[in-house]
Amino acid sequence: MTDETDTSADAQRRGPNVASNAWKRTLEDLETIAEERRDDGWDVLTVKAAQTDTLGRDTGSTDSFGLFHVLPNNHAEPFSETYDSDAYTEYLAYGSIIGGHKYLITELIDPDNERSILIAGRYTLARAQGMITAARDEDVLYTHVKTIDGTILGTFEHEEYDPLLPDS
Rank of each mutant, 00 (worst) to 15 (best):
R57L: 15
T147G: 11
F79I: 04
E159F: 06
V145M: 09
H69Q: 12
D63N: 13
R115L: 02
A19C: 02
T59M: 11
D10Y: 07
V70E: 09
M1F: 03
A87V: 01
Y103F: 15
T155R: 15
L108W: 14
G66V: 12
G41R: 06
Y142A: 06
A49L: 11
D112A: 15
E90I: 05
I148A: 13
A22H: 01
L71S: 04
W42K: 11
D137H: 10
G150I: 03
T133E: 10
G95Y: 06
L125C: 03
F68S: 05
S116A: 15
R38V: 06
E36T: 12
N21F: 05
K48A: 08
F65P: 02
T124Q: 08
G99W: 08
E31C: 00
A120K: 03
M1T: 06
D40G: 06
Y123L: 00
G100M: 11
K24V: 01
T147D: 03
A34K: 02
H158S: 13
D139T: 07
N73R: 12
G66H: 04
V44N: 07
T151E: 15
V44G: 08
A76D: 03
L92E: 15
E107F: 03
Y91Q: 13
R37C: 05
T124E: 14
H144M: 13
Y91K: 07
E31M: 02
D139A: 06
H101F: 14
D149I: 10
T133V: 03
G66N: 09
N17R: 04
Q129M: 05
P166H: 14
G99E: 10
E138V: 03
L141E: 13
R136C: 01
Q51E: 15
A49P: 01
L125K: 04
L153K: 09
Y88H: 01
Q129H: 10
D86A: 13
E138A: 14
H158T: 07
S8A: 11
I148Y: 12
P16H: 08
Q51M: 10
S85G: 00
R25T: 13
S61K: 08
D63H: 10
R127I: 00
G15F: 00
E81S: 11
Y91W: 08
T2H: 12
N74H: 08
D110V: 06
K102Q: 14
D167H: 13
I132G: 05
G130K: 05
L118N: 02
D10W: 08
N113W: 02
E36P: 09
G121I: 04
T32C: 04
L45M: 08
H158P: 00
E81V: 01
D43K: 12
V140Y: 09
D139V: 02
R115Y: 00
T82D: 01
T52R: 11
D6Q: 14
A87L: 12
D110I: 04
G41P: 07
N74W: 01
T82P: 09
L71R: 06
R13N: 13
T7H: 09
T7N: 09
L71V: 04
W23D: 05
E4Y: 08
L118A: 00
